[in-house]
């Protein structure tokens, strides 16, 4: 199946797949998968994806297309990715606004781009080329970053908006990343959300993060969603409207019931926010 992606979704991860696919909880409305985990891979991952598609709409979220890389694209990979997305019939694909590699080497992590005109142009042009190559909408995602740039704080949102407008792109808005950056660099996360062109938001990510002893927050996707992030999600949804929301949990994966409790909280926030919009 690939029906409409709406409401609250969950990332399909190996550590929780067995229980999730057996129980098929109704509160999980859709699933998100990383193509890199499934492309040219058989065995358990192939089986997981086939079962997931039987029961849920699926969207994809890339890890390695590296919108900010100065290197040329690997056209063979984009071809394979496009075929994979067509087969899954995903309504859009998303990628991170970051640097994922250089000189054909991959960091396997999301390294920050400087908030410069050059980086915005590189990212916008790459997004356009990738979108053309895969033949479907490509949303960029704002990332967490830990190393100060020459200009921090709300300069980040100006950078994100600049890339969105140059590429006429959609946005996957990660509210946990906004929150993490706001604490690490001292700005108002709601002011960041206020500057986002809401009509470009097609999806929202929410997750937990690690607070180190020195106070630095790291976007681990390995902890429960904190209350402050729930509150920022509520604020965001009241502005952007009924876009699908994904709970990301990649590490330190708890029993499924704990994740479903978070999903229930997200549904409550989602419905309250939509109710508040309807009441206006």
């Amino acid at each position: 199946m690939n029906g409409e992606v709406q409401g609250i979704g969950l990332g399909l991860r190996h550590d929780l797949a067995t229980e999730l696919l057996e129980r098929r909880p109704a509160s999980v409305a859709w699933l998100e998968v990383h193509p890199e985990n499934y492309l040219n891979r058989g065995g358990r991952y192939q089986e997981m994806l086939e079962l997931a598609r039987t029961h849920w709409p699926v969207v994809t979220h890339g890890l390695s297309t590296c919108l900010g890389s100065p290197d040329p694209f690997d056209t063979a990979y984009l071809h394979d990715l496009g075929a994979f997305l067509r087969d899954l019939e995903v309504p859009w694909h998303s990628e991170h606004l970051c640097l994922g590699g250089v000189d054909d080497r991959f960091f396997h992590d999301l390294l920050p781009l400087p908030f410069t005109d050059e980086a915005a142009e590189v990212a916008a042009q790459r997004l356009i080329k990738a979108r053309d190559a895969i033949g479907r909408p490509l949303a960029l995602e704002n990332v967490s970053y830990y190393a100060p740039q020459a200009t921090d704080g709300l300069a980040e949102v100006d950078f994100v908006v600049e890339v969105l407008e140059r590429a006429d792109a959609a946005l996957l808005l990660d509210v946990n990343n906004i929150y993490v950056n706001s604490k690490n660099f001292g700005f108002d996360p709601r002011a960041f959300v206020d500057k986002i062109p809401t009509e470009r938001v097609v999806q929202v990510h929410v997750a937990g993060h690690l607070v180190r002893e020195d106070g630095l927050r790291i976007d681990t996707h390995g902890e429960p969603v904190p209350d402050d992030v729930y509150q920022l999600l509520d604020y965001t949804l009241r502005k952007v409207g009924p876009v699908p929301v994904l709970l990301e949990r990649d590490n330190n994966v708890p029993p499924l019931d704990e994740l479903l409790a978070e999903i229930d909280t997200l549904w409550t926030i989602y419905r309250n926010a939509m109710g508040a919009r309807d009441a206006v």
Binding site: G68, P70, L99, V102, D103, R105, F107, L113, E118, A119
Partner: peptide, 14 residues
Amino acid sequence: MLSDRAKAMQRVCF
């Protein structure tokens, strides 16, 4: 330049 920063990141990380 972005490429100079990217290569510096590569050297720092690897």
